[in-house]
Design a protein around this nucleic acid. Structure first.
Lengths: 168, 168
DNA sequence: TATTGTTATACTCTATAACTATA
DNA sequence: TATAGTTATAGAGTATAACAATA
C-alpha cells in the first residue's frame, strides 16, 4: 500500500527543497514590499490582482476567487471583509445565482494596485529574475504551468472540505 | 529611481504566479500529510530534516538552523522549544562558543522523521513529480538552485534584523 | 439534499522589543 | 560594541463547526 519506492532521486529532492525555499523567500520579500508601500498582505494583493488584472469586468464570484489563493471559505470571507472595509472592493448579490456574492474591485482598489505594482515588479526583478536568463524564465513558466494545472485538479485528498465548482 | 520598466513580460508574470501557486498548493498538501501522519508542521519537519538528513552529526547551531526556514530568531526559538517539548530534539551548549546553542536530533526525532518520510515522498510524487518528466525535474532543480543562492545572499533589504553569521 | 457564504471561536504562528550573556 | 539566544507580548491569519439561505 506504500508508494513504488520510499525514496527520491537527489535531483527530485533538490527540486523540491529549492522550490519551497525560493517561494518562501520570494513571498517574504514581496510581502514586505506590499506592506510597506501599499498596506496589503500577499493574499489581499492576489485577490486584488485577480479582480483588477485577470478579470475584464473587475468582478468575480467568491467561490471563483478562492481558487488557489485561500484554502477555506471562511478565510476568503475574512480577507474580502478586510478589503471591503478598506474600500478596495465591494460585495453585492450575484445576478444569476441568489446564493452567490459578487466581489468587485473599486476605483480605490485599482489605484492601490497601481500604487504597489511598480515596486512589486522591482522586487521580482531583484529577487527572482535577475539570476535567470530570459530563456530560463520561459522554461520555468513552461515547466510549472502543467504542475499548477495538475495540482488544481487534485484536491488535497483528505482536505477537500467542499467540492469547488467546476470551472465554466 | 524606479526600475527600468514598470512592467513584466507575460512569461515573467506567468512564471511568478505559477511558482507561487505551485509552492502554495504543495505546501498545503505536505502540511496536511505531516500533520496527519506525524503531528508536525512544515517548519518543524524542515528543522528535523536539516538535522537528521543534512547534518552528519545530527547537530547544528541555532543560527545555522534558521537559514532559509524561519525569518526571525524568536520564531526559531519557539519552534525549537516545541520540538524539544516533544522530545524530538535536545538543546545544549555549543562546544566552541559559549553563547551558542547546539540543537541535536534525538532517536525519537529520527524515528518521527522515518515515520513521515514515506508518506511525504508519496505526496510529492502525486502532486509535484507526476506531471513532470524526469528530465524536467533536473531542469527545474538546475533553474532554481541559482535563484535560491541569489536570494540567500540578498537579505530582504529593509528586514535583515540581524546579519546572519557567514557560512563556514 | 447540496451548495453558497457568513459567523463565532479557538488556536497557531509570527514579529517586535527588551533583556541576558558571551566574544 | 557586536553577536547568540530567550522571553514577553501583541497581532494577524487560519481552520472548524454551526448556521442561514438558495438551487
Amino acid at each position: 500500500m506504500s508508494g513504488p519506492e520510499p525514496t527520491l532521486e537527489p535531483a527530485q529532492l533538490g527540486a523540491y527543497f529549492a522550490l519551497m525555499e525560493v517561494a518562501g523567500l520570494l513571498r517574504h520579500g514581496v510581502e514586505q514590499q506590499l506592506r510597506d508601500e501599499g498596506d496589503l498582505t500577499y493574499v489581499q494583493f492576489q485577490l486584488l490582482a485577480r479582480l483588477g488584472l485577470d478579470s475584464p469586468t473587475g468582478s468575480r464570484r467568491m467561490t471563483d476567487l478562492a481558487d488557489g489563493l485561500v484554502y477555506s471559505r471562511s478565510g476568503l470571507t475574512y480577507q474580502a471583509g478586510l478589503l471591503e472595509q478598506a474600500g478596495l472592493v465591494e460585495r453585492g448579490p450575484s445576478p444569476d445565482d441568489e446564493r452567490g456574492v459578487t466581489v468587485t474591485i473599486t476605483d480605490a482598489g485599482r489605484a492601490r494596485l497601481a500604487r504597489v505594482l511598480p515596486g512589486h515588479v522591482h522586487v521580482l526583478r531583484d529577487l527572482l529574475f535577475q539570476p535567470l536568463a530570459s530563456t530560463d524564465v520561459d522554461t520555468l513558466a513552461a515547466l510549472l504551468a502543467p504542475v499548477r494545472d495538475h495540482m488544481r485538479a487534485s484536491p488535497p485528498r483528505s482536505a477537500a472540505p467542499r467540492r469547488r465548482k467546476r470551472n465554466g
